[in-house]
Design a protein around this nucleic acid. Structure first.
Lengths: 209, 209
DNA sequence: ATATTTTTTGGTCATTTGATTAAAATATTT
DNA sequence: AAATATTTTAATCAAATGACCAAAAAATAT
């Protein structure tokens, strides 16, 4: 497990190289399809080092999974519970922030969706997304708006599904709906930029429809 | 390989039992996480029979994958190219039909999304969803509506993403957003029923927003 | 009833895969 | 520099896994 390593290294430590390689490969292929040898090769290290630093494939995966969920959840938590922004302002912020964040690692939505199905590391218990959402100020706010009649009487779950769906679905369905991949990569990018602005407008229209 | 089997059997043939078991297990766990022994057990047959009837795990998977994509695509193709229905009518039909169909096999969206990422059987070439959509009458219709100014000038890709995302995303994200699973299964079901009616209304509002 | 074909079974093989170990190489401390 | 601790390597293990095969069982044809 490496006691210490005080040399302020310029190139990353072996441990970090492995973790970064694991992130890349796990995100791309998922837990089951990933071989520890794939990770070792991607990291350019000896296979034994993976077990030396992380004990097992599963342990390493759990670390990656929790960190990935962190990226996903942490960027949201603050916004959800901000008592100073309106509903639509929250949608604007989330829309922009998520699309920007995930653009840099577009495999994340598919990765999370895929791995939560088989639920390898029991992540759902460790990071209870559902509770985080339901206990958020956003939901209170939403219910108040419904109460006051300013928006239609529709379950807040529907609202959450719509916002997240509009943001995340393109990343998940891109290969299916936009064909091949890299040929029209610019087109996909332009689409995402547009969506950052359009999603809040769409959501607002839906709330009143 | 079985030349024939004329006995009009009440219980399904071995071949069909294997295929059905394969469908269930593949849909639930995906290609990589599925062991041929899982399928054999689910089907209640000897492991060798799987290879006897289907040559290999991969061959069997391709069959299931193509059939699954068929369920997904075929139910859509007719509607997409119906020249007698309006845009919104199409959305209504697709929304109802898809949600009803997929409710019976809710793993399908996650399965397709997950397997197309690793693209095991090169399905995207065999069933070019992207082309089917782009060559459809629906897209022509959409562009005409944009042209006439009756709906906002937004790429048809955005429109497709929105319709499919609103329909399919709940199935993919259910465990994440609605927590555990079966506890609130009724709630999920009610939500879907609502969505069948709401999605066309929402889409219409979005088109004009 | 006998022969032939088809289906099913149990056993086994070769490969892959996650993990371990002992020793070598490198770094750190004394 | 010697001693100690750490990191890295190569070789190997055991379990899992997809596939195969020869013989038994069942079904079909003669």
């Amino acid at each position: 497990m490496a006691k210490k390593k005080e040399t302020k290294e310029i190139d990353t430590s072996t441990e970090d190289k492995i973790k970064e390689a694991a992130r890349v490969v796990f995100h791309k292929k998922g837990y089951a399809a990933t071989r520890t040898r794939d990770i070792a090769e991607e990291a350019g290290i000896n296979l034994s080092l993976l077990n030396y630093y992380f004990r097992s494939k599963e342990k390493l995966f759990e670390i990656i999974m929790l960190e990935t969920m962190g990226v996903f959840v942490n960027s949201m938590i603050g916004v959800l519970n901000d008592e100073k922004t309106t509903l639509i302002e929250k949608v604007e912020i989330i829309s922009h922030r998520y699309i920007d964040t995930i653009k840099e690692q577009p495999e994340i939505p598919g990765f999370i969706a895929g791995e939560i199905r088989n639920n390898v590391g029991n992540v759902l218990e460790k990071i209870p997304v559902s509770q985080i959402i339901n206990n958020s100020f956003l939901v209170k706010q939403y219910k108040a708006e419904v109460e006051s009649g300013r928006i239609k009487n529709v379950s807040h779950i529907q609202f959450i599904m719509n916002v997240l769906g509009l943001i995340l679905f393109p990343f998940i369905s891109q290969p299916l709906i936009m064909g091949g991949a890299d040929i029209k990569n610019n087109e996909f990018n332009d689409m995402l930029e547009q969506r950052k602005k359009l999603i809040p407008i769409w959501i607002e229209a839906m709330l009143k429809a």
